[in-house]
Design a protein around this nucleic acid. Structure first.
Lengths: 194, 194
DNA sequence: ATAATTATTTAACAAATGTTAAACTATTAT
DNA sequence: ATAATAGTTTAACATTTGTTAAATAATTAT
């Protein structure tokens, strides 16, 4: 295993829980690096999600079909975790699809291996809890923004927080993420130009 | 400690992780029952959230101020967990306020006690992780509904899922929860009457 | 290099939701 | 019982976003 490739993920992990060498090695033994080309699918509809990914490079999107249309619910920022969680936790077929918006390098771990890691090292379970807590808080922040902010404010904040994302991700997906139609986003962008 | 009062919470807990007698007793020793009257505050703005609550009776709401106005982001259904999570996890002053919509009976545990429970019994930490996973999934579902559904659909679904809530909770809070203004909700309700 | 495909913009009109202000109804306190 | 307060509805008009359809721009495949 090339250790350099794990630099980002280890840096990320250490923000939450302080691991000993052996605990990190136990994790390293179980991870698998996956490279996806643009539009490749990480988790298919109907699959049971059995891997969780850390996006070391590139952007993933989480989407599902609604009235025959693709709706992008999430665009994962760089260096974050992604899986189809409802499927992953309950081991039921996934209605969510995860695919690569750009070429991606994913650091992944299998669910069973993760469970065993949790069993063997309570600190890993603590890490799992902390991560999901962060994800929940971020998710609540997004609900807050749907309730109180206009689409324009949501767009401006996204632009500020993830300027690269706007550059690398088709606006269709950004529009879905913001909860508006592509044409409305386009109109909104124009009104900001002046 | 009156064991009957814990019936609901234990039933709820057992859905997620199967606990042994001693593990449940360890928990029971640490909980505190809190009774709130309507409009009493469970977590104040600026407080560091140090308790998490299970709503054994009644409804809580989570709100914050935006441009001097109260915005209700969450109404906690019966038999669910609530705390000001951003404050609780990072021990920083809370911008979120939690108060009682109706008279409430809360089964609560102090954060330090909870941490010690996690330390002593990895199964409790597992429970903590599972619960927050569920909460995250529910939160994602709500984002999905903001993206794809109209306010009318969101209202109808809420009505179906929590008919009691509509009866017991002022429409102002419901409207916030749905992401629309009280007057819009009122108009919408009228249009459904026919 | 060119054609085909994908992404983005534009515009006119429709629908949904917000804003302001007032009236009405129900609940709570004295 | 009555006054005060809190909750809900109504309505007219404003603003935002959606819808449909087409044009333009950028990217990708041959």
């Amino acid at each position: 295993m090339n250790l350099e490739i794990l630099e980002n993920v280890i840096k990320f992990i250490n923000q939450f829980v302080d691991f000993k060498e052996e605990e990190l090695i136990a994790m390293q033994k179980k991870i698998e690096i996956i490279h996806l080309k643009k539009n490749d699918i990480f988790i298919k509809e109907g699959d049971i999600a059995d891997r969780i990914a850390f996006t070391n490079k590139g952007y993933l999107r989480v989407y599902y079909y609604y009235n025959g249309e693709e709706i992008t619910r999430d665009i994962t920022p760089l260096h974050s975790f992604a899986t189809a969680l409802p499927s992953f936790v309950s081991q039921t077929p996934s209605f969510e699809i995860i695919s690569a918006i750009t070429d991606c390098e994913l650091i992944t771990i299998n669910r069973d291996d993760l469970e065993r890691l949790y069993e063997s090292f309570p600190k890993w379970e603590r890490f799992g809890r902390r991560i999901i807590e962060e994800m929940f808080v971020e998710s609540q922040r997004r609900i807050y923004s749907f309730i109180t902010e206009t689409a324009e404010t949501r767009y401006k904040k996204l632009l500020k927080q993830y300027p690269d994302m706007i550059r690398d991700v088709p606006l269709k997906y950004i529009a879905d993420f913001l909860g508006i139609k592509l044409q409305s986003l386009s109109r909104l962008r124009k009104s900001l130009d002046w």
